[in-house]
Simulated assay, not measured.
Amino acid sequence: MARAARIALIVFTALASVGFVALAVWQVQRLGWKQDLIARVEQRLTAEPVAPPAGDVGKADEYRRLRLQGRFEPGEVLVQANTELGGGYWVLAPLRLVDGRAVLVNRGFVPPAQRAPESRAAPAGPVELVGLLRLTEPLGGPLRANDPAAGRWFSRDVAGIAAQLRVPGPVAPFFVDESADPTQPQRSPRPGLTVVRFANNHAVYAATWAALAAMAAAAAGWLWREERRRPGTLT
């Protein structure tokens, strides 16, 4: 190998080590952010339910426990779902709040055998329920775009579903996953199946990048020593 190529290899491995160190530091920062996120979400999940917010919502509001009072309006949309109970559908229906706004409520999960509407009529009259605030999902999924005309929904797109159901008046820009009431018998749709789980592998990633940084640094050091041993080269 020519001397210029050997020097280039030394420089490359040294720079690779620096890059791996930067990636390890970034993953450590991500670990802190993820731990803070998990702590904040867990705090929301155990807090007392509050009234639904007015206006726009963001990430800081997701998974906040809400208490809703109102009446279910006619109509519902089935959104394809995969849960711990298997494949099936989420049942989303509009709830008219006492203040006049409408909120889409995910009443829970039904298997394909219970797709028929008569198997899950929404309660008549005033209702009160507790649920988790969820952000709208307008983009569908990879290769799984919502098709309202065909009645195929893969994501819980609040604006799209409200338009499909022709919900009149103001509609909240979020939906609510209804929570299970432990004092009531199990029903269909099955509420309370929201999965609140965040992948937190940043410590493993940081350790991996740090190990690669050490290996690259060791390789650069070895190459440098070997180059210095060559007669008439580096001194």
Rank of each mutant, 00 (worst) to 15 (best):
R3C: 11
R3K: 10
A5N: 05
I7V: 15
I7M: 09
A8R: 14
L9Q: 14
I10V: 15
I10G: 04
I10Q: 11
I10D: 03
I10P: 04
V11Q: 01
V11S: 05
F12D: 00
F12Y: 03
F12N: 00
T13Y: 06
T13E: 03
A14Y: 11
A14G: 15
A14W: 12
A16P: 01
S17D: 04
S17C: 06
S17P: 00
V18S: 06
V18A: 13
F20L: 07
F20Q: 08
V21W: 12
V21N: 00
A22H: 03
A22N: 02
L23G: 01
L23N: 03
Q27R: 04
Q29G: 11
R30M: 04
L31A: 09
L31W: 07
G32T: 01
G32N: 13
G32H: 12
W33T: 09
W33Y: 05
W33E: 13
K34F: 05
K34R: 13
K34Q: 15
D36G: 09
I38G: 05
I38E: 12
A39W: 06
A39Y: 03
V41M: 03
V41I: 15
V41G: 02
V41K: 08
V41C: 08
E42A: 14
E42P: 01
E42D: 14
Q43T: 11
Q43S: 12
R44E: 04
R44N: 10
L45D: 02
T46D: 06
T46V: 13
A47Q: 12
A47L: 07
A47E: 13
A47H: 09
A47F: 04
E48S: 14
E48C: 00
P49F: 09
P49T: 08
V50T: 15
A51V: 02
A51D: 14
P52W: 10
P52M: 10
P53D: 06
P53V: 08
G55R: 10
V57G: 07
K59T: 11
K59G: 12
K59R: 14
D61C: 01
D61G: 03
D61H: 13
E62S: 05
E62K: 08
E62F: 02
E62T: 12
E62P: 00
Y63D: 07
Y63E: 05
R64D: 02
R65F: 04
L66Y: 07
R67K: 10
L68M: 06
L68I: 04
L68G: 02
Q69H: 12
Q69M: 04
Q69E: 14
G70R: 06
G70Q: 08
G70V: 09
G70I: 09
R71S: 09
F72S: 10
F72C: 07
F72H: 05
F72Y: 15
